[in-house]
Nucleic acid binder design. Structure first.
Lengths: 180, 180
DNA sequence: AACATACTTGACTAATTGGTCAAGAATAAT
DNA sequence: ATTATTCTTGACCAATTAGTCAAGTATGTT
């Protein structure tokens, strides 16, 4: 009945997710998004809405892809609790020092730079964090330990952003495993 | 020999620190800074330099005031190691849920939103973090534990930003103390 | 082939951004 | 009182910001 889209919506949303992931909400301009997606403003607005909506979609996508991946792993009973937490804490270890890794965790980034000032972001971030926390609790079967592991995980992500090296992150991972 | 300054430099620098603390680098505009300090752009430029320089001064001030305060407490041998770490972890507990507290930790905020893209910020943040880490190590007398406590501390700050309540932060504090 | 529909493009806007500068105002030394 | 020096003010600037829109283009249905 009408002209069809020329772009691959999944690829475009991935690109949008990546831009916000790396530069944050305020740090990302339309020029960045247009460059990353190859689309013009008009198409972006027509397809996804305004900047805030794009940011929300980026977070939702991160949740559906990255957080869900972690949750699935943490709930995999074929793996020992120890190995599941080790896998979780290996994320920051592998991220340390690399360009890609220093994008950090979008959840953590959004919490710091938007959650306190934007209710909608606060809601999405809270939901995702709780999903992750529940999965950790499922893995370690201890609510208090789960909170502590979650904190260590986010702290590790902050330290990677700050530029700390792999060896520091390995220590944090190992120390986290000792608490199990 | 010449006209004297009409403003109190300390108060102005505190105001600048607070604005960046609450809104981050990109989230802060000159309009914000002018409103917070009561000064005109010309005066700000003449006295402190450009926006980047203001941000650096804000971080330096946070280090000299807040980080130094924590370091001093952590190195106070009149307090037991347990009480010193408890004091540290009480920061996020008391911050949880309050408007003021949700400004978070400027160190942590700067790590997330500028350290990966601005070398100068990375340097200042790294220095401050290491100062804090060394003080924790001094308190607990264990390098690996110190790294882990630091991570839990930063993670706690992220969770406060995300909007988690006091009870969550209390659990994290208590769990951190258990690891001593 | 004609039409209805939806997509794409790029020019456009009003507001805001960080930053500059000249003119005037206040002060201390002479 | 004059002068040299520094501070303050607000107008100004070019660039960028997010967001709009009309015109043109492609497509599936009839």
């Amino acid at each position: 009945m009408a002209r069809q889209r020329e772009f691959d919506e999944d690829k475009v949303l991935d690109a949008i997710r990546d831009v916000f992931w790396e530069h944050g909400y305020e740090g990302t301009s339309y020029a960045n998004i247009m460059a990353a997606t190859g689309l013009q403003k008009g198409s972006l607005y027509a397809a996804f809405g305004d900047k805030r909506a794009l940011y929300q979609k980026a977070i939702a996508r991160y949740d559906a892809q990255i957080v869900s991946g972690a949750v699935k792993m943490l709930r995999n009973e074929n793996l020992s609790p120890h190995i599941r937490i080790k896998n979780l804490m290996n994320g920051p270890v592998e991220a340390a020092g690399t360009r890609e890794g220093r994008k950090g965790c979008l959840l953590c980034n959004a919490a710091i730079d938007q959650a306190a000032s934007d209710k909608e972001t606060e809601n999405s971030v809270t939901l995702s964090i709780n999903r992750l926390k529940d999965a950790i609790r499922f893995a370690v079967n201890d609510a208090a330990k789960a909170e502590h592991i979650l904190a260590a995980y986010f702290g590790a992500r902050v330290l990677v952003k700050a530029g700390m090296g792999k060896s520091t992150l390995e220590i944090i991972r190992n120390q986290t495993l000792l608490s199990l």
